[in-house]
């Protein structure tokens, strides 16, 4: 057992953990923060995304012992009081989810992206959340939700967000590489 001290969603926890414990399991099983979910075994899906010292990481690919002394924010910590985070609100309003399993990770990855790029284009959103897989929505409304939230967070009206269009072509950056 290794002692760790971690701040999670504003509260400080001191615990003994087995070194092999993944951060996601520590959050879910030891702290009861089940908002963060596990979607794969291969570090690909991003469902487990949390912020570690302010940066989005896949909590299934971080050991709990590596988070010692760090600050973790999960999906359960982004709302303030009863007010949803603008990105949470936008996923709701823009229908950015169907089953909702990918949503906690999508929201955490999107918040991280918007901190670096407050006004991303559609392509930049797609690139920015490429580490998150959604098996339901086809991403179209997720991209809308992120851009809607971005506009909201820049202060003010939902400027350039356009309704979803039917477009089955691959993302342009991929075409560019082919």
């Amino acid at each position: 057992m290794t002692p760790i001290t971690v701040r999670v969603d504003g509260a400080t926890y001191a615990d003994d953990v087995e070194p092999r414990t993944l951060l996601v399991h520590y959050l879910r099983e030891q702290l009861g923060k089940v908002g963060t979910v596990v979607g794969c075994d291969t570090s690909n899906c991003g469902a487990c995304t949390v912020h570690l010292d302010g940066e989005a990481v896949k909590s299934c690919t971080v050991l709990a012992v590596q988070a010692d002394g760090c600050e973790v924010t999960t999906i359960e910590g982004v709302a303030s009081g009863g007010d949803l985070h603008p990105v949470q609100k936008a996923f709701n309003e823009m229908h950015g989810l169907q089953c909702g399993y990918c949503t906690p990770g999508m929201i955490m990855a999107s918040i991280d992206l918007l901190e670096d790029n407050p006004d991303p284009s559609d392509d930049e959103v797609r690139e920015g959340i490429e580490g998150n897989l959604c098996r339901c929505t086809g991403y179209q409304n997720i991209v809308r939700a992120v851009r809607h939230a971005a506009a909201e967070m820049r202060g003010g009206a939902d400027g350039h967000v356009v309704p979803a269009q039917v477009d089955t072509a691959a993302a342009p950056h991929v075409v560019g590489q082919a």
């Binding site: 570090s43 896949k58 490429e130």
Partner: peptide, 9 residues
């Protein structure tokens, strides 16, 4: 390389 999350670590 990979995605933003993997590049952070």
């Amino acid at each position: 390389v990979a995605d933003r999350q993997v590049r952070h670590r």
